[in-house]
Design a protein around this nucleic acid. Sequence first.
DNA 1: TCTCAAAAAGAAATGAATTCCATTTGCAAC
DNA 2: GTTGCAAATGGAATTCATTTCTTTTTGAGA
Lengths: 146, 146
Amino acid sequence: MHARHSQTLKSLNLKATPRRLAILALLGEAMTYVSPEEVWHRLKGEFGRIGLPTVYRNLEELAAGGVITKVLHPNRQLYYLFCPNREHHHHFVCLACRRVEDVDACGLENIEREIGERLGGRVTSHLVQVNGLCRACSATEEGMQR
Amino acid sequence: MHARHSQTLKSLNLKATPRRLAILALLGEAMTYVSPEEVWHRLKGEFGRIGLPTVYRNLEELAAGGVITKVLHPNRQLYYLFCPNREHHHHFVCLACRRVEDVDACGLENIEREIGERLGGRVTSHLVQVNGLCRACSATEEGMQR
DNA sequence: TCTCAAAAAGAAATGAATTCCATTTGCAAC
DNA sequence: GTTGCAAATGGAATTCATTTCTTTTTGAGA
């Protein structure tokens, strides 16, 4: 069951340690984005002890490797999301229930080309994320709480 | 000279206090995005004393009123930018020299419409920002330092 | 099995951002 | 001009996510 994740880690030159596999499994099964602290709490049950720095380190490494995605919440906290969609796309992020919907890539490639050509700059990263309330949350009072 | 800024503040139901006017003036004259701490340091010279919370509060209020724009740096710090362009658009942000170029709005309106129609969600905010090195910085070693 | 670089733990540090509350100040009404 | 009061400010202390440091443990190839 973890063979796939082990393979993923190997391709990133990361050792397939139990913590890493557990973090990947947790993210892979979550239907929402999760915070580092939440990952830490949940894995404490599984491992008895696990360091918070370990969680931060691994989430960052996985994100750097493109396996998981960062979600920048308006509350300034950083969350992480496992998204199996390998196509270039972006996300509609529900601030209430934390579910995420894929959104097809917009004309961002055009923009990057424009920057390269018109402005002569070099693009190193971009940020595209749409925040709001999903259908279910925008229909309930719950959604109004932020 | 400050008449315009006073007017801006009035329209946001904010009193035209000296600090606010100074913050607006500083941002308005800056060619780059600046950090709250930088605003604080520079205004200390002008006022003798000014509280850091005042700077944070005002920057946040001005951003909430749409007068200035937040810049989310990959280094996780928040910066602010005064951009006179009132059209809907986005930014190409140079991580080295902090200059910003306007980029025409991409298909984001389409995306928001798609979310409203296909997903039934409500969009409360979005994040579009392209990071990189401007022409000048990508040409020099300076640019390589991040 | 042995070796060693990579990984993890725990405690402590960092630092941007915020809260609290006493004091001051715009500014509109008198 | 004065006055009154809500809004704005300062400064200290605090919060809290994130990171750094150092030592110990462990995965996995030789």
